[in-house]
């Protein structure tokens, strides 16, 4: 509290003192660099925006979670040069004031593809300019900041390493890697159960799933991750019905991370005593019976029933237009 009171300022003084009104140095420093200083026409290379936060300050991931804004850049590029979307390293979870955010602390690099058209002649100077805006927050204050970022390249043979090539290589290695196998998500009771096939080892005690889109689960939802063979099985309390047919996100244990693109599947359970029972909340039992009959008639049940007559049916959402129509109360033609 003593520190807080030190902040007390005379407002008139601050208003009238030009020195005090000058924008203070940014809490997050930025730097633009390229893998190569001589990108080759017709080829693609990477550039990176390295952001270095003061201790105690953070910036936001592409999905900021409960509050915040991710960095955004507006490029000014020479003819024949294109830059792709920003790629983010995996975030960490930060909960402050009851709000859970997906953030980056310390030093981190946002990467983007840079391509030079093959019509660009070698030796052409390629000044890359960008206006970068971001939100920097500490544990008590949030500040919108901006910077002009620049790097000068010359079209060439793509062989000269840029100033921070090593840093960018490290940043590339830190990007979430594509999961090696398939992934699906099903609604079981009030939880999302993910099934992610991947050969990449992640620590399940610290692994956490970060959604790219909103509406799947709360940013601070308690998650648990089980492992089974080559599968990772995160389980997360759902915050509502599925906002999309596919979940996109990142699974990170704080060191390694993978991208997750999980298709939504509907699960139903069959037993001789109760008949068909929907586990998915969005299903009415009668509708499900009708729907499953429709699917059985069509011979498209994914998983066979087991010997005692109980079993699990996995209906892929993409291949079962009929069940989709029931679940979402809308018509579609199979």
């Amino acid at each position: 509290m003593i520190f807080r009171l030190l902040f007390a300022l005379f407002v008139a003084g601050a208003a009238l003192a030009p020195a005090a009104a000058q924008a203070p140095a940014a809490h997050i420093a930025t730097d633009l660099s390229a893998r190569v200083s001589d990108p080759r026409p017709g080829m693609r290379t990477r550039i990176g925006i390295t952001m270095t936060s003061q201790p105690g300050w953070h910036a936001y991931w592409r999905n900021p979670g409960d509050s915040g804004l991710p960095p955004a850049v507006t490029w000014t590029l020479p003819e024949g040069v294109k830059i792709g979307a920003l790629e983010y390293p995996a975030p960490t979870l930060l909960t402050l004031g009851g709000l859970a955010s997906y953030v980056h602390e310390g030093r981190f690099t946002l990467l983007a593809d840079l391509s030079v058209d093959d019509t660009v002649r070698p030796g052409t100077r390629l000044p890359i300019r960008g206006a970068l805006t971001w939100l920097a927050c500490s544990d008590s204050l949030c500040v919108p900041e901006r910077a002009n970022i620049a790097v000068d390249l010359v079209a060439g043979r793509g062989r000269s390493a840029g100033m921070d090539a090593a840093l960018l290589r490290k940043a590339e290695a830190a990007l979430p890697r594509p999961a090696t196998g398939t992934a699906s998500v099903t609604r079981t009771g009030d939880r999302w159960e993910f099934l992610i096939d991947t050969a990449i080892a992640l620590g399940r005690d610290t692994a956490r799933l970060y959604p790219v889109g909103d509406g799947w689960f709360g940013a601070d939802a308690a998650q648990r991750v089980r492992m089974s063979g080559s599968h990772l099985l995160p389980s997360v309390p759902a915050s509502g019905s599925a906002p999309a047919d596919r979940f996109e996100g990142v699974l990170s244990d704080g060191r390694s991370s993978i991208t997750v693109k999980a298709s939504l599947r509907t699960v139903a359970v069959f037993s001789p005593a109760t008949g068909l029972r929907a586990l998915s909340h969005s299903y009415d039992r009668r509708e499900l019976l009708r729907d499953l009959r429709f699917r059985s008639d069509a011979g498209e049940i994914d998983a066979p029933l087991n010997g005692n007559g109980a079993g699990k049916l996995l209906l892929s959402r993409t291949s079962t237009c009929g069940s989709l129509a029931v679940a979402r109360q809308r018509r579609c033609s199979p």
């Binding site: 807080r4 902040f7 924008a23 204050l141």
Partner: peptide, 23 residues
């Protein structure tokens, strides 16, 4: 901007300006 604020929250308490959250 005139008060030199850079971010939120900020509270003007009488003549005193207190940037940042307070207990």
């Amino acid at each position: 901007a005139m008060m030199g604020l850079t971010g939120t929250p900020a509270l003007l308490v009488g003549p005193y300006l207190v940037p940042g959250a307070m207990e």
